[in-house]
Design a protein around this nucleic acid. Sequence first.
DNA 1: TTATTTGTGATTGTTTCTGCTCACTTGTGA
DNA 2: TCACAAGTGAGCAGAAACAATCACAAATAA
Lengths: 253, 253
Amino acid sequence: MFEEERKRSIVHFVEKHTRASVQELSQELGVSESTVRRDLKELEESRLLKRTHGGAVSLQSVNFEAAIPEKADRYLDEKQRIAHKAVEMIQDGDAILLDGGTTTLQIAKALRAFSNLKVITNSMIALNELKDCRNIEVSITGGLLRQDTLAFVGPMTERSLEMVRVDKAFLGTNGLDLREGITTPNMLEAATKRKMISVAKQVILLADHSKIGQVSFCKVADLREMDHCILDRETPEGFIRGLKGLDLDYTLV
Amino acid sequence: MFEEERKRSIVHFVEKHTRASVQELSQELGVSESTVRRDLKELEESRLLKRTHGGAVSLQSVNFEAAIPEKADRYLDEKQRIAHKAVEMIQDGDAILLDGGTTTLQIAKALRAFSNLKVITNSMIALNELKDCRNIEVSITGGLLRQDTLAFVGPMTERSLEMVRVDKAFLGTNGLDLREGITTPNMLEAATKRKMISVAKQVILLADHSKIGQVSFCKVADLREMDHCILDRETPEGFIRGLKGLDLDYTLV
DNA sequence: TTATTTGTGATTGTTTCTGCTCACTTGTGA
DNA sequence: TCACAAGTGAGCAGAAACAATCACAAATAA
């Protein structure tokens, strides 16, 4: 790797993570810490980043981090398995819709591998993940920013969604119950999800077992409106029997 | 193989792989490293690639990444003064529209001081700046992400904008000319700006002196459609006379 | 043909890059 | 506030890459 390329990688790394330690960079790039320091010094001189004691930070950091840090995310492992299955269902050339939430975020992280994809989402975090993928066309729904989830909701979101038709929509949820169907605590969010369902050829619901049996304030849809559900293998027996009873397509991962 | 052919091969190789070492090229073309170096030197002089220690890299990849940060820094001081003036024009309770670009970004940075404000923008960078201000209600227009400017454009953006009416819109531009009016290089962007103008009670144009006299590919609007212009004090005399001639309201900062 | 120019490869001294060491500075927690 | 760990910069040395030069061969011109 040339010096030029290395420096560009550093800037890119710092932009992406908003920060980077000398150690990290040294390992990441396979060069000594001396070299990293030299590079950082020059990059700072050309105003491409700001040095700090121990590393560097991005100058104009556009970085939308989840309110819940990934490590603290409960059921992360389940979510990743669910996302992995979801990605298997996507084909190159698809137009897909990603709902907000931490489960769908895991999908976004895995999308880089595709070479031709249209993605539309209402999640700032998912967008952040995809913003530098040159081979993915990313759109966002407009709307009002919910500052706790960094997702957009509201009439503008619905209006934006009216303009698109997608092959597959991947929906997250707060509650999932055989009788009450899919529910979430927020009215605007529920309306947004309903609209998402209506613009997708195929709707795929993602939920780890902690969501099952939960019923929240606002109803989004009945279970039968889903085309497929991806659940984890700790899903209670009873719920699975219920799904079979509804003749609903599902996968356990 | 003639020298010309060889040089073209080199450029082609570098473009294709985004990089090439002297060794690689020497082997690939069956000539000595001396020759490769000579060629690279001349190719760099004719600006067909960029030399590095050990080889060369494609120009495209260089420009891509340098685009944002480099642009951000030029005329920063002017932009801050312009933004400062713009912020003075905003009142608590206003609904304002922020265009994308680095000048309007400076406005976003200064908005934290307000206690009650509705902001709508198509700029991911501005959104980033405002996302954790609890006293500001931030909305974003939907749309397709332009990965180089991190702004949203396109039909979805326009559709979102149709849903709002704002007190003041703050517009940036690439080109500003007495005869040709306001112009930008991107068609979608131009359409977005036009829509912005149509939903605002008052349109305020922001431009540092580097924009003046510039004419880009797509026309956004005539100068007379602006309600106010904020320019810096290095704006050429002739341009200011022109503004007066048009009876246009302006401020120099 | 002969003289001259041009392009190329080899050689050589010089420059640049990189990792290491070590003395010094900075940040942190007791 | 002090001590200690972590991070830093300067200098050095080896390796790699480089520019300059020369020599030779092929193309061109006389």
